[in-house]
Amino acid sequence: MPTRRLMPDVIKNQELTCLPPDATVRDAATLMAEKRIAAVLITEGRTLKGIVTERDMTTRVIAAGLAPDTTPLSAVMTADPDTLEPSATALAALDLMERHHYRHLPIAVNGEAVGMVSIRDLFAVVRTHLEDELRNREAYMFGSGYSAEATVG
Protein backbone atom coordinates (compact mmCIF):
# COMPACT_ATOMS: atom_id res chain seq x y z
CA MET A 1 0.00 0.00 0.00
CA PRO A 2 2.79 2.53 0.68
CA THR A 3 3.60 2.86 -3.02
CA ARG A 4 0.03 3.25 -4.29
CA ARG A 5 -0.44 6.74 -5.67
CA LEU A 6 -3.78 8.53 -5.53
CA MET A 7 -3.79 8.78 -9.31
CA PRO A 8 -3.86 6.40 -11.08
CA ASP A 9 -3.61 3.65 -8.44
CA VAL A 10 -6.56 4.62 -6.24
CA ILE A 11 -8.73 6.62 -8.62
CA LYS A 12 -8.63 6.74 -12.39
CA ASN A 13 -10.99 7.85 -15.13
CA GLN A 14 -12.92 9.85 -12.57
CA GLU A 15 -15.59 12.27 -13.73
CA LEU A 16 -15.46 15.31 -11.47
CA THR A 17 -18.71 16.61 -10.05
CA CYS A 18 -18.40 20.35 -9.66
CA LEU A 19 -20.64 23.35 -9.12
CA PRO A 20 -19.89 27.08 -9.02
CA PRO A 21 -19.94 28.95 -5.68
CA ASP A 22 -23.19 30.74 -6.57
CA ALA A 23 -25.13 27.48 -7.13
CA THR A 24 -27.62 26.75 -4.37
CA VAL A 25 -27.59 24.06 -1.72
CA ARG A 26 -30.64 22.58 -3.48
CA ASP A 27 -28.59 22.35 -6.71
CA ALA A 28 -25.87 20.44 -4.87
CA ALA A 29 -28.31 18.14 -3.08
CA THR A 30 -30.09 17.34 -6.34
CA LEU A 31 -26.83 16.64 -8.16
CA MET A 32 -25.53 14.49 -5.32
CA ALA A 33 -28.75 12.47 -5.27
CA GLU A 34 -28.69 11.98 -9.06
CA LYS A 35 -25.08 10.81 -9.06
CA ARG A 36 -25.32 8.95 -5.74
CA ILE A 37 -22.33 10.77 -4.28
CA ALA A 38 -21.70 12.46 -0.94
CA ALA A 39 -19.60 15.48 -1.91
CA VAL A 40 -19.30 18.10 -4.62
CA LEU A 41 -16.28 20.20 -5.51
CA ILE A 42 -16.92 23.93 -5.73
CA THR A 43 -14.98 25.42 -8.62
CA GLU A 44 -14.66 28.49 -10.78
CA GLY A 45 -13.61 27.03 -14.08
CA ARG A 46 -11.26 24.27 -12.93
CA THR A 47 -9.95 26.30 -9.96
CA LEU A 48 -10.90 24.68 -6.68
CA LYS A 49 -12.69 27.06 -4.33
CA GLY A 50 -14.19 24.64 -1.84
CA ILE A 51 -16.04 21.43 -1.12
CA VAL A 52 -19.56 20.71 0.12
CA THR A 53 -20.47 17.36 1.67
CA GLU A 54 -23.62 15.76 3.01
CA ARG A 55 -22.30 16.49 6.48
CA ASP A 56 -21.96 20.19 5.60
CA MET A 57 -25.55 20.27 4.42
CA THR A 58 -26.77 18.65 7.62
CA THR A 59 -24.83 20.84 10.03
CA ARG A 60 -24.53 24.13 8.14
CA VAL A 61 -27.88 24.23 6.35
CA ILE A 62 -30.56 22.06 7.93
CA ALA A 63 -29.44 22.41 11.56
CA ALA A 64 -28.87 26.15 11.04
CA GLY A 65 -32.32 26.61 9.53
CA LEU A 66 -31.08 27.97 6.19
CA ALA A 67 -33.19 27.74 3.04
CA PRO A 68 -31.68 25.25 0.54
CA ASP A 69 -33.32 27.00 -2.42
CA THR A 70 -31.69 30.36 -1.74
CA THR A 71 -28.50 29.58 0.18
CA PRO A 72 -25.44 29.70 -2.10
CA LEU A 73 -22.80 27.03 -1.74
CA SER A 74 -20.23 29.73 -1.02
CA ALA A 75 -22.02 30.34 2.30
CA VAL A 76 -21.76 26.75 3.51
CA MET A 77 -18.77 25.20 1.72
CA THR A 78 -15.44 24.44 3.28
CA ALA A 79 -13.38 27.10 1.51
CA ASP A 80 -9.80 26.41 0.44
CA PRO A 81 -9.89 22.77 1.57
CA ASP A 82 -6.77 20.75 2.16
CA THR A 83 -5.69 18.94 -0.98
CA LEU A 84 -3.11 16.42 -2.09
CA GLU A 85 -1.44 16.06 -5.46
CA PRO A 86 -2.10 13.02 -7.66
CA SER A 87 1.35 11.62 -6.85
CA ALA A 88 0.63 11.53 -3.10
CA THR A 89 0.35 8.07 -1.59
CA ALA A 90 -2.86 6.45 -0.42
CA LEU A 91 -1.26 6.31 3.03
CA ALA A 92 -0.70 10.09 3.04
CA ALA A 93 -4.35 10.65 2.14
CA LEU A 94 -5.52 8.22 4.81
CA ASP A 95 -3.35 9.93 7.41
CA LEU A 96 -4.61 13.43 6.52
CA MET A 97 -8.22 12.29 6.46
CA GLU A 98 -7.90 10.53 9.80
CA ARG A 99 -6.20 13.48 11.50
CA HIS A 100 -8.82 15.98 10.33
CA HIS A 101 -11.86 13.68 10.24
CA TYR A 102 -12.49 14.12 6.50
CA ARG A 103 -14.34 11.58 4.40
CA HIS A 104 -13.56 13.32 1.09
CA LEU A 105 -10.34 14.95 -0.01
CA PRO A 106 -9.85 16.93 -3.22
CA ILE A 107 -6.88 16.17 -5.44
CA ALA A 108 -5.44 19.27 -7.06
CA VAL A 109 -2.49 20.45 -9.10
CA ASN A 110 -1.58 24.13 -8.74
CA GLY A 111 -5.06 24.92 -7.42
CA GLU A 112 -6.83 23.08 -10.24
CA ALA A 113 -9.19 20.28 -9.23
CA VAL A 114 -8.25 16.99 -10.89
CA GLY A 115 -9.99 14.47 -8.65
CA MET A 116 -11.41 13.57 -5.29
CA VAL A 117 -10.62 10.59 -3.08
CA SER A 118 -13.06 9.26 -0.53
CA ILE A 119 -12.53 7.20 2.58
CA ARG A 120 -14.39 4.43 0.75
CA ASP A 121 -11.79 4.54 -2.06
CA LEU A 122 -9.02 4.21 0.51
CA PHE A 123 -10.82 1.42 2.35
CA ALA A 124 -10.79 -0.58 -0.90
CA VAL A 125 -7.01 -0.06 -1.18
CA VAL A 126 -6.42 -1.11 2.42
CA ARG A 127 -8.61 -4.17 2.00
CA THR A 128 -6.78 -5.25 -1.16
CA HIS A 129 -3.45 -4.71 0.59
CA LEU A 130 -4.50 -6.80 3.58
CA GLU A 131 -5.80 -9.60 1.35
CA ASP A 132 -2.50 -9.62 -0.57
CA GLU A 133 -0.53 -9.73 2.68
CA LEU A 134 -2.60 -12.63 3.94
CA ARG A 135 -2.12 -14.58 0.70
CA ASN A 136 1.64 -13.94 0.80
CA ARG A 137 1.91 -15.09 4.42
CA GLU A 138 -0.13 -18.21 3.75
CA ALA A 139 2.05 -19.01 0.73
CA TYR A 140 5.15 -18.52 2.88
CA MET A 141 3.88 -20.66 5.74
CA PHE A 142 2.13 -23.39 3.78
CA GLY A 143 3.59 -23.18 0.29
CA SER A 144 6.13 -25.51 -1.24
CA GLY A 145 9.71 -25.23 -0.11
CA TYR A 146 8.88 -23.83 3.32
CA SER A 147 8.01 -26.95 5.29
CA ALA A 148 10.10 -28.33 8.14
CA GLU A 149 10.87 -31.33 5.92
CA ALA A 150 12.45 -29.32 3.13
CA THR A 151 16.07 -30.17 2.49
CA VAL A 152 18.86 -27.98 1.28
CA GLY A 153 20.45 -29.38 -1.88
Rank of each mutant, 00 (worst) to 15 (best):
residue 85 E to Y: 01
residue 48 L to R: 10
residue 58 T to F: 01
residue 97 M to K: 11
residue 36 R to E: 11
residue 30 T to D: 08
residue 120 R to D: 05
residue 114 V to R: 14
residue 104 H to A: 08
residue 152 V to L: 13
residue 36 R to L: 07
residue 84 L to R: 09
residue 94 L to M: 14
residue 90 A to R: 11
residue 130 L to K: 12
residue 6 L to R: 07
residue 21 P to Q: 12
residue 109 V to R: 15
residue 151 T to L: 11
residue 18 C to M: 14
residue 133 E to T: 14
residue 121 D to G: 04
residue 25 V to R: 09
residue 2 P to T: 09
residue 28 A to H: 02
residue 80 D to I: 01
residue 15 E to N: 10
residue 41 L to N: 03
residue 139 A to S: 09
residue 10 V to A: 03
residue 60 R to P: 02
residue 20 P to Q: 10
residue 26 R to D: 04
residue 10 V to E: 01
residue 1 M to H: 07
residue 8 P to M: 10
residue 130 L to N: 04
residue 39 A to D: 04
residue 82 D to M: 11
residue 24 T to R: 10
residue 79 A to P: 00
residue 153 G to L: 12
residue 38 A to Y: 01
residue 127 R to W: 02
residue 22 D to N: 13
residue 3 T to Q: 06
residue 60 R to T: 09
residue 49 K to Y: 00
residue 112 E to Q: 15
residue 30 T to K: 14
residue 64 A to H: 08
residue 71 T to W: 05
residue 60 R to N: 07
residue 83 T to M: 05
residue 111 G to Y: 04
residue 133 E to M: 14
residue 41 L to M: 05
residue 5 R to C: 07
residue 73 L to K: 07
residue 153 G to D: 13
residue 8 P to L: 09
residue 64 A to P: 00
residue 32 M to E: 07
residue 34 E to Y: 08
residue 37 I to Y: 03
residue 135 R to F: 01
residue 12 K to V: 11
residue 41 L to E: 07
residue 143 G to M: 01
residue 134 L to R: 15
residue 113 A to F: 02
residue 133 E to Q: 14
residue 144 S to T: 03
residue 118 S to C: 06
residue 153 G to R: 14
residue 69 D to P: 00
residue 35 K to I: 05
residue 31 L to V: 15
residue 122 L to C: 10
residue 57 M to L: 15
residue 9 D to R: 08
residue 88 A to D: 05
residue 136 N to D: 11
residue 46 R to C: 01
residue 97 M to F: 05
residue 83 T to C: 12
residue 58 T to M: 11
residue 17 T to P: 00
residue 137 R to A: 10
residue 55 R to L: 03
residue 129 H to L: 02
residue 14 Q to E: 10
residue 104 H to D: 07
residue 74 S to A: 15
residue 4 R to V: 05
residue 47 T to V: 13
residue 89 T to G: 13
residue 139 A to M: 04
residue 58 T to H: 00
residue 40 V to R: 09
residue 80 D to P: 00
residue 47 T to Q: 13
residue 24 T to C: 06
residue 145 G to H: 12
residue 29 A to C: 11
residue 34 E to Q: 15
residue 125 V to M: 09
residue 121 D to R: 10
residue 49 K to I: 07
residue 27 D to V: 12
residue 84 L to D: 06
residue 21 P to V: 14
residue 38 A to W: 02
residue 5 R to S: 13
residue 131 E to K: 15
residue 107 I to Q: 08
residue 93 A to R: 09
residue 52 V to Y: 01
residue 16 L to F: 02
residue 64 A to E: 14
residue 147 S to M: 03
residue 95 D to S: 12
residue 86 P to H: 12
residue 98 E to L: 11
residue 1 M to E: 05
residue 119 I to S: 14
residue 52 V to R: 02
residue 51 I to M: 08
residue 70 T to A: 09
residue 148 A to H: 09
residue 83 T to N: 06
residue 53 T to W: 00
residue 52 V to K: 04
residue 86 P to R: 14
residue 9 D to W: 04
residue 21 P to T: 14
residue 11 I to T: 15
residue 121 D to M: 07
residue 77 M to P: 04
residue 109 V to N: 05
residue 2 P to R: 14
residue 98 E to S: 15
residue 152 V to P: 00
residue 46 R to S: 12
residue 16 L to V: 08
residue 86 P to W: 08
residue 66 L to D: 02
